[in-house]
């Protein structure tokens, strides 16, 4: 029994050391990433009510999209579109910057899909997100 336990320990130790490299934190503290984070955080104050009303939702590719603009008064639809466009520009830059900051520009697509999942996971209930079948309420 002890032997088996020891063996398992050894193996897990081996694995941990293997994974040690991969488990290291990703670099996200660059000025470009903070600038984007800041800009998105400021914008979120304006976007939050649009998520709640279902006017916008989270897409499969880590962006946001107008889901139902009719949930928004006419006069706000133009700014809604502008906000969505600006948010998506920032998100696209963010994924690219994170990949670049970690010296792996080819990771952009995987970072994007990781984010896509996490945005949805962390979304408040009532917000909409897109899956293979279309818009789904969380």
């Amino acid at each position: 029994m002890k032997k088996i336990l020891f063996g398992l320990l050894l193996v897990s130790g081996l694995l941990a050391s293997q994974l040690g490299m991969a488990a290291a934190d990703l670099e996200i503290n660059t000025p470009a990433i903070s600038a984007l984070q800041n800009s998105m955080q400021n914008r979120h104050g304006q976007l939050a009510s649009f998520y709640t009303s279902g006017a916008i939702g989270l897409t499969k590719d880590g962006l946001i999209a107008v889901k139902d603009a009719s949930a928004v008064p006419l006069k706000d639809r133009q700014s809604l579109n502008a906000l969505v466009a600006a948010e998506n520009a920032d998100r696209n830059k963010l994924y690219k910057e994170i990949a670049a900051a970690n010296a792996h520009p080819e990771w952009e697509a995987e970072i994007r899909s990781t984010f896509a999942q996490r945005w949805v996971q962390k979304a408040q209930s009532g917000w909409y997100y897109q899956d293979a079948s279309g818009w789904v309420k969380r």
């Binding site: 694995l15 490299m21 991969a22 934190d25 990703l26 990433i33 984070q37 955080q41 990771w107 995987e110």
Partner: peptide, 29 residues
């Protein structure tokens, strides 16, 4: 012994990326 771990993609640090994403999302939201 641990066949479940074989598919870990050593080239893309998925767990770290998730952690980074969570950190940023928590901040933005």
């Amino acid at each position: 012994i641990l066949p479940a771990c074989v598919t870990i993609n050593i080239y893309f640090p998925a767990a770290a990326a998730e952690k980074a994403a969570d950190k940023i999302i928590d901040d933005v939201w």
